[in-house]
Design a protein around this nucleic acid. Structure first.
Ligand SMILES: [Zn+2]
Ligand SMILES: [Zn+2]
Ligand SMILES: [Zn+2]
Ligand SMILES: [Zn+2]
Lengths: 164, 164
DNA sequence: CGAGAGAACATGTTCTGCG
DNA sequence: TCGCAGAACATGTTCTCTC
């Protein structure tokens, strides 16, 4: 699937390593903290977006039609600017099932995952999953998220260990 | 409504200040940490319980038919022993919308409310509600429960400030 | 002003000791 | 062995600072 196919459809572009375009909204801009070359298999990523009225529908469509080799970089790529209409209500944390509060260490995450990442890096934590390494990162009563699976996902999504 | 009316119905009794009876299950026992005289309006409390198969249905029926003057003492009163079948899955925190993990400071609460109470007492915290003093004590993303309303409910339910 | 890093603080979960 | 108080630790939210 390439931008040329399906002529009637608008497209979401990663123009190059540092630029995203949302043609439907007219938003075009550079993202200084975005470096696609560091995300495996995502140096060129496009997706068909038939139509959308909110961030959440855009993200869903983007995810559904994407031909990227790794789905894990999607939340990172698809994150629109903070002033995009609707962002705050609809953006999902790239790590867990919370609402994202903004970009933290390069990814759209909630406050919890932001702090978890900072502390894990600062203390150089090593975790081991008690199960199959595929834990669902969803909050349940009286139980924290699996630390090993949470930290692994932080790395996969490309969170920056050094801040900025 | 008194135990004498509706002869066919089983009853839940607070026999006296320190004893509860669940006739349907045959459970009778003393509860050393139960002192009804300290709960306003609850020195004599009875309720009709037509039938029940689990704690949750018992609690619902108890709450619905109770003629107690204050509904706030119900979770305290209705709490069965920890070894009662089904307790762990069905007991609700007397303060918030979590699952209760046991009796803490005299009430059936979750770990969170247990710690909140201990710290509030230890540090002698005074809180002021930002709203109308009737906040719903239900967890929402990126927001803590209203401290003032939470602590007030802890007192109303009769949590013990001194531990035991 | 707004966004976000890091510190400070509040909250929630697990561990330890005791009865 | 079990229940729970309190301590210890982990997690989550708010504040402060800088850009
Ligand atoms: Zn998260
Ligand atoms: Zn895991
Ligand atoms: Zn609670
Ligand atoms: Zn309140």
């Amino acid at each position: 699937m390439t931008p040329e196919s399906g002529s009637q459809q608008p497209w979401v572009f990663a123009l190059n390593n540092r630029e995203l375009v949302f043609p439907d909204s007219g938003i075009t801009g550079q993202s200084p903290d975005l470096d696609l070359s560091q995300i495996p298999g995502s140096s060129r990523m496009t997706a068909s977006v038939p139509e959308y009225s909110s961030i959440s529908s855009l993200l869903n469509t983007f995810q559904f039609n994407s031909n990227a080799s790794s789905i894990l970089s999607l939340p990172f790529l698809a994150l629109p600017p903070m002033n995009f209409p609707d962002f705050r209500r609809n953006a999902k944390c790239a790590i867990c099932d919370e609402v994202a509060t903004g970009r933290h260490y390069g990814a759209a995450t909630c406050f919890g995952c932001k702090s978890f990442w900072r502390r894990s890096i600062y203390f150089q934590r090593k975790y081991r999953c008690k199960f199959d390494g595929k834990c669902e990162l969803k909050k349940a009563p009286h139980q924290n998220l699996c630390r090993a699976c949470r930290l692994r996902k932080c790395f996969e999504v490309g969170m920056n260990p050094e801040g900025w």
